[in-house]
Every structure is written in C-alpha cells, then in structure tokens.
Amino acid sequence: MLYETSGRTEEVLGVNIEDLDFAGRRCPLKSKGARTKARRRGQAREDYVLETVYWDAGTARLLPRLLKGRTRGPVFVTHRKPGPGKVVSPRDVCPDTGFARLSYGQARALLDEHTAVRGPGTGWDLHEYRHSSLTHLGEQGASLLMLMAKSRHKKPENVRRYFKPSPDAIAELTSLLAPGDSRR
C-alpha cells in the first residue's frame, strides 16, 4: 500500500477500515501538515482537510487478507492487545479484536525483520517505498506535476529529491538523441 499510494508511512498507518473505498481503490487520510477546516460553532478541533490516496491491484488483492473479515477499526494492527498500563485512544484499537494500531516503530521493525539479509538493521526502510514509487513513475514518463499530485507535495523541489532515475532510464532517454531517431 505504501508503494502504490506513494504515501507517507504515518499517514497510511493512520487509516481506518471504514474509510477505505474498495471499489474506487482510494481512501481519504489526514496528511502531514494538514490544515484544519474553518471552525464553526460546535465543530471539533480535530476536523481537518482530508486528502485522497489511490492504490491499484496489488493492494486491492492484499487488503482482504490483511483485514481477515474485520469491518471497522485500524487497517494495520499489532498481533496483540495493548498492555494494562498502556493508554491508547479508542480510535487506535480494533473494536472487534482489541488489537492496537500498528505504530511506525513496530512497522519498521517488522519490515526489517522480514527483509534483512545480513542481520538486524539491513532490511528495507519504510520510506524507500515512497522513493521507489515516485522514481518508477518518473521513469515511466510521469510529469513533475503528476508526481506532485500523486505524492501530495506542495513544492517541486521536495519531489525532485525523491526522483532518482536508474542508469537504464537515463540511457533510454539519451537514445532519443540518436541520429535518425524518428521521435525527434
């Protein structure tokens, strides 16, 4: 889901099942630096302008396996209930299983555990999914504006640091300059 949405890990981990639009393959989420809606009388302080992330077939296939029949609560949960001394918001606990929402640290540790090749700390990083997603979209010809829309960045210079084309992509681009190329 991180790869296909190009989302930030904290944002994706904060999604609840009831927010998912399975048919449209999208969900609204509170993004980093989300601004609050204009407050009216009686409106809670937690009302934010939500942004939408989109995913494709890979995430659509995996979500039902991850949810295991759950219909409400956090999408990503731990494998156990919070301890007796742990204070957890009701929003961060699955009402059906009692399991707590997966934290960034737990997600990072799980990913490292399952991808490490030379011992702890050598596995993948959660943020690499965002980098890879934007790099692959850029290599496929997505414009800077589309990359900004997908990643929900406000400034072009922030997107540029994510886009690191491979040597093969640069070689293919260079081949467009070849003499006699009909694409010129």
Rank of each mutant, 00 (worst) to 15 (best):
E10C: 12
D21S: 11
S151T: 13
E4F: 08
L147S: 11
T97H: 08
K30Y: 07
G24S: 12
P28C: 12
P120F: 07
L13E: 10
D168L: 04
Y3A: 01
R61E: 08
S132F: 08
K30D: 06
S166Y: 03
V75W: 05
A107I: 02
P90V: 05
R80N: 03
R160P: 01
V77S: 03
A100K: 03
V87D: 03
G69H: 07
R61T: 05
N158T: 12
A149F: 15
E46A: 09
C27T: 14
T36W: 13
T78K: 01
P179H: 02
D125Q: 10
G105K: 02
S175H: 06
K32Y: 15
R108G: 02
A116Y: 10
F76G: 02
S143H: 14
K154G: 12
R183L: 01
K164Y: 00
S89I: 01
V12L: 13
L102F: 06
Q43A: 10
S151A: 15
P28I: 09
L134A: 05
W55D: 01
D92G: 02
G73V: 05
N16K: 06
K164C: 02
E51T: 14
G42F: 12
D19S: 07
Q140S: 14
L102G: 00
T122P: 04
R161G: 08
Y129R: 05
E18S: 07
D92R: 06
L144F: 13
P156N: 11
R160I: 07
R70F: 02
V53A: 12
A57W: 04
R118N: 08
H136N: 11
K155Y: 15
S31M: 15
D47V: 11
S133N: 12
P64W: 07
P165W: 06
